[in-house]
Amino acid sequence: MSIEKESPAPTAAPAIDARGLTKRYEDGVRRREVVSDVSVVVPQGALWVLRGPSGSGKTTLLGLLGAMVTPTRGEVIVCGEPLSRLRDHHRTRARRRLVGFVFQELALVPGMTLTENVLLPLVPEGGATNAQRAHAAALLERFGLTAFADTRIERLSGGERQRGAVARALVLSPPVLLLDEPTAHLDAARVLEVVAMLAALRDEGRTIVATTHDPRLADSASVDRVLDLADGKLVEN
C-alpha cells in the first residue's frame, strides 16, 4: 500500500479507473438512480470534461470518481489505489493525498482568511510545514491572489474565490484534480482564463476532470475528451 506516499509516482496505472459505478438514493419509499453502471478509464495527464444538462448526474459522478460519494455498486481505483474498497478513514486519507476537489459552490469557510482556507487540508496532518506554507504562497502568487492572502473569504470576488478554491485543492499536490462547473457564472474572458489555467495544470502532468454544461469549456481545443452524460448514463459520442 502506498497510502502514505507524498505523491504517487507516475505508473502505468490510469489516473482514474471506474468500474460499473452506480449510485442510488433512497428516501422513504422513493428510490432514484442518479448514476447507472458507469465505467470509465481516465489516463494520466488528461483534461476531460463531463458534459450534460443539469440533473443528469454529473456532480454525483464526479463525487464517485473522487471517492467522495460512496457507490451503491461498483468501484473506483485512483492511481492504482482501490479507494472504494478501503475502510472509511483510510479512504479519506488516501483521497486527501490523491484527489483535489473544487466544488461549484467553492466551499470556502467564511470568517477565515484566504491563506487559512488554503491551509485547511493540512490541519489534520499537524498543520503546515514551512515548505507547505511556501507552496501555498506560491500557489496564491500563481493565481494572482498574493494581495488577498490575509483577506477574509467574504470580502473576495467570485473569481478570486474560485481561484482560491483551486489553490486549496492543489495545496497537497494531488495528481488528480476534479472540478464541478468551474465556469458557471463567469463571463467570456474569465472562461478563457479558467481554460488556460486547467490546460497549464494538465501540462504539468495532472489529470483533470471537470463537469460542465457550458459549451465554452466543453468545446475548447484544450480539452482532451468530452464525455456526455444523460440520465446518469454515459452517452457514446
Binding site: T70, P71, T72, R73, E75, S84, R85, L86, R87, D88, H89
Partner: peptide, 14 residues
C-alpha cells in the same frame, strides 16, 4: 463489501 451499508456501520463503529 464496500457499500453504503458498510460505510454506515463504520461510522457507527466510530
Amino acid at each position: 463489501r464496500a457499500s453504503e451499508g458498510q460505510l454506515y456501520l463504520e461510522r457507527r463503529a466510530e
